[in-house]
Amino acid sequence: MLRPLHLILLALLLVLQGQLWLGRGSVPDVMRLRQVLKDQKQQNAASRLANDRLSAELHDLKDGLEMVEERARSEIGMVKPNEIFVQIAR
């Protein structure tokens, strides 16, 4: 009488072990997903840092006319009215 019960319990144990090691949500699957999550968090941190830098530069460009003027002077050679531009060749 105990023999069929043992077989049922053994079959149930095998099914549960198969799920643990091979099925969805298995140990290897969880480890892989943890690595994917870690990689994504690193990418998010790098993107957040780049966004913060761009946001700060955008804020400076919107509010800081001095920075705009400095860039215009250095990149395109802007000269204000009544200013004299002197270029020294070395």
Rank of each mutant, 00 (worst) to 15 (best):
M1P: 02
M1T: 08
M1Q: 06
R3N: 05
R3F: 07
R3V: 06
R3L: 09
P4G: 01
L5F: 06
L5Y: 10
H6L: 14
L7H: 13
L7I: 06
L7K: 13
I8A: 13
I8Y: 09
I8Q: 12
L9S: 02
L9Q: 14
L9R: 12
L10P: 00
A11C: 13
A11K: 11
L12C: 12
L12E: 12
L13F: 12
L13H: 01
L14N: 00
L14P: 00
L14A: 07
V15I: 13
L16R: 10
Q17C: 07
G18W: 02
Q19M: 07
Q19P: 00
L20D: 03
G23Y: 04
G23I: 05
R24E: 04
G25Q: 04
G25K: 00
S26M: 03
V27R: 01
D29K: 07
D29V: 00
D29S: 11
V30I: 15
M31A: 07
M31H: 00
R32M: 04
R32G: 02
R34A: 13
R34F: 07
Q35T: 14
Q35I: 09
Q35G: 10
Q35C: 07
Q35W: 10
V36N: 01
V36I: 10
V36D: 09
L37G: 06
L37E: 10
K38E: 05
K38F: 05
K38P: 01
K38T: 04
D39R: 13
D39S: 11
Q40D: 02
Q40R: 14
Q40N: 14
Q40C: 08
K41D: 10
K41Q: 15
K41L: 14
K41S: 15
K41W: 10
Q42V: 04
Q42K: 14
Q42S: 09
Q42A: 15
Q43Y: 10
N44S: 11
A45E: 14
A45K: 13
A46C: 07
A46N: 15
A46L: 15
A46Q: 15
S47N: 15
R48N: 13
R48V: 08
R48S: 10
R48Y: 03
L49P: 00
A50T: 11
A50Y: 13
N51Q: 15
N51G: 07
D52I: 03
D52L: 11
D52Q: 14
L54E: 03
L54Y: 04
L54M: 14
L54R: 08
S55D: 04
S55M: 09
S55Q: 14
A56D: 05
A56H: 06
E57R: 06
E57F: 03
L58R: 06
L58M: 08
H59F: 08
D60C: 00
L61I: 07
K62A: 12
D63K: 05
G64C: 15
G64D: 15
G64F: 04
E66S: 12
E66F: 05
M67C: 03
M67Q: 05
V68Y: 02
V68D: 02
E69Y: 08
E69F: 10
E70R: 14
E70K: 08
R71F: 02
A72D: 04
A72Y: 04
A72H: 01
A72W: 03
R73G: 02
S74G: 01
E75A: 07
I76P: 02
I76A: 05
G77Q: 05
V79C: 01
P81H: 15
P81I: 05
P81K: 13
E83T: 01
I84F: 05
I84K: 06
F85I: 00
F85P: 00
V86N: 03
V86C: 03
Q87W: 09
I88T: 12
A89I: 10
